[in-house]
Design a protein around this nucleic acid. Structure first.
Lengths: 192, 192
DNA sequence: ATAGAAAGTGACAGATGTGTCATTTTTATA
DNA sequence: TATAAAAATGACACATCTGTCACTTTCTAT
């Protein structure tokens, strides 16, 4: 009964991610999105009232997916296994993390749906943080992580580590191994 | 003989920094800049041909200032003193570093001056990197830094560390101390 | 006081973006 | 094959940003 769609929601979100990463939130527009999807601008307005709605909706979609994966962390009982799991996940979906971080600072206007979405995003953030805080707690309980370091700093280091640009093309495997190593033991030689 | 200026180059650059940080490169426009400086748009065109020129010019200004400061690192002979110096500098001018990082990924068009500026920016980058690479070399020579970690990763960790958001308001002094501590010795307890 | 140089302005034309909606196209099914 | 629901379109009105430039304002040296 209905005409065939020219793009799926997934395709739209994929393109949204690409454009957000390449041009930032302010550089994102319905015009370019429509062009990239080979569709008229009006079509997109059938599904989203405006840019704010679309982007927050997209972020929710990504964060939900990510949170679901992240929860898999609880299949491991040892802190070190959880850390490995987390780092692998983060390296796999590096771009996605960048988008999620971007979500923090998009200017929020008075749009109905966007406002609601923004609240949901906040909730998801807290939810994600909780899972990770649990991991740190476990690490400290298991006598692995030094108690004197604030949890938020431990997490901060882990998260920032994946965004370090590998300018000189160190082979990925070695790169990741080194990162884990620095997280574990720091950069300084131990005095024997 | 001449009329009084309504703003200094310094004021213009300060505002440029603010706007770049708040709205990103794509969100930056002559219109808002002019409004903020309480001046007509045309006035700014007296000094800069377009946004690309202005922004690259601004970046050069910042980077030159920063590089000059950074060179002060050589007044120290011990690696640990150099590291302290660097971290203090970075924490003091955190926003500036963000802007410099932004400079990496601004889309470069076919404007004469902007193209030239971009090349100069590249050079400054390399120059900055050289100063820092020297520091790492020193650290390794003095037996402080573990040789097996790639230089670029050592630097990456240091640079990313200052961008870790202090969401839970850990007191700045403690925060910085912890960061230095993690950089030095990692997050894991040593097994005795 | 006044000439003229530097600084600033505002209006114009054109590009790009937004949101809306009456109209057209597609397509499964009755 | 006729129908009607869903999908897509394109044009309209309005907003914002860009570059340009003839013109006005300010101010100092004479």
């Amino acid at each position: 009964m209905a005409r065939q769609k020219k793009f799926t929601t997934d395709e739209l979100f994929q393109m949204t991610r690409r454009l957000l990463l390449d041009h930032g939130y302010e550089g994102f527009s319905f015009s370019v999105l429509a062009t990239r999807l080979d569709v008229s601008r009006g079509t997109i307005y059938k599904y989203f009232e405006n840019k704010e709605d679309l982007v927050t909706e997209y972020m929710l979609y990504e964060m939900n997916k990510y949170l679901e994966e992240l929860k898999g962390i609880h299949q491991y009982e040892l802190f070190e296994d959880q850390l490995d799991f987390l780092l692998d996940l983060m390296f796999r979906d590096q771009e996605l993390l960048q988008v999620i971080e971007m979500g923090q600072k998009i200017p929020i206007q008075e749009s109905d749906r966007a406002k609601l979405n923004h609240e949901k995003i906040e909730t998801l953030h807290i939810d994600m943080y909780q899972n990770l805080a649990d991991m740190i707690k476990l690490g400290k309980e298991q006598g692995k992580v030094r108690e004197e370091i604030p949890d938020s700093l431990v997490l901060g280091f882990i998260f920032q580590s994946i965004t370090i640009p590998n300018h000189f093309g160190v082979p990925p495997h070695e790169w990741v191994r080194s990162i884990k190593d620095v997280i574990r033991h720091g950069m300084f030689k131990e005095l024997n």
